[in-house]
Simulated assay, not measured.
Amino acid sequence: MSFFNSIGRSMSRNPRPQKRSPTPTSADMPPPPSPVSPPASKPLYLCSPFVEAALVKGNFKTIVVLPKYVDIMEWVAVNVFDFYTNLNEFYGVISECCTQHSCPTMSAGTGLSYTWINQDRKSVNLPAPTYIDYVMTWVQNLLDDENVFPTKSGHDFPQSFPSTIKHVYRQLLRVFAHIYHAHYPQLLHLRSEPHFNSLFAHFLAFGREYELLDLKDVKGAANAPVGIGALWDKWKEMGILEG
Rank of each mutant, 00 (worst) to 15 (best):
P67N: 01
W75Y: 15
S113I: 03
K68T: 13
L112V: 09
S102T: 15
N118L: 03
T110G: 13
W116Y: 15
C98W: 01
M73I: 02
C103Q: 10
Y84I: 04
T99R: 01
C97N: 08
T105F: 09
V64Y: 05
I63G: 09
W75K: 06
N118G: 09
I63E: 14
T130M: 12
V64K: 03
I72V: 11
L126E: 15
Q100C: 12
V65I: 11
S95M: 04
G58I: 00
L66Y: 03
N86K: 14
V65L: 06
I63C: 11
R121P: 00
N88E: 15
P104V: 10
V65H: 07
G109H: 02
N79M: 11
L126T: 05
V76W: 03
S113M: 00
V56T: 13
V65M: 08
V76T: 09
G92M: 02
E74D: 14
T105L: 12
G58M: 03
K61M: 14
A128R: 06
S102A: 07
I117R: 08
P67W: 01
F83W: 00
N59W: 05
S123V: 06
F81Y: 15
K122W: 05
T85N: 10
N59L: 04
N79T: 11
R121E: 03
D120K: 14
I94K: 01
P104L: 10
T115E: 13
F83D: 08
K122C: 13
M106H: 09
H101I: 14
D82Q: 13
K68C: 05
D82M: 01
P104D: 12
P129F: 00
N125F: 09
L87P: 03
E96Q: 04
G58P: 09
V64S: 12
T99G: 03
M73G: 08
P127M: 07
K57E: 14
N88S: 13
V93Y: 10
S102I: 01
D71P: 00
H101Q: 13
P104T: 08
Y114W: 11
W116I: 03
T85A: 13
A108P: 01
T130G: 00
L66W: 08
N88G: 01
V80N: 02
I63W: 10
V124H: 06
V70I: 06
I63Y: 07
P127A: 14
N86M: 08
P129H: 03
K61R: 11
Y131V: 05
I72W: 01
A77K: 05
V76S: 01
Y69L: 11
W116S: 13
Y84H: 05
N79E: 15
L126C: 09
E74M: 06
V65W: 00
P104F: 07
N59H: 06
I117W: 04
G92F: 03
K61L: 12
T105E: 06
I117H: 02
A77T: 10
C98K: 00
T62L: 09
T62M: 05
F90M: 04
Y84K: 08
D82N: 10
S107Y: 00
V78E: 15
P67H: 03
V80E: 12
K68Q: 12
M73Y: 06
D82A: 03
H101S: 11
E96F: 00
W116E: 12
V64D: 06
G92N: 02
A77W: 04
F83P: 00
S107V: 07
G111A: 12
N118A: 12
P104G: 07
G58E: 05
K61F: 10
A77V: 05
P104N: 09
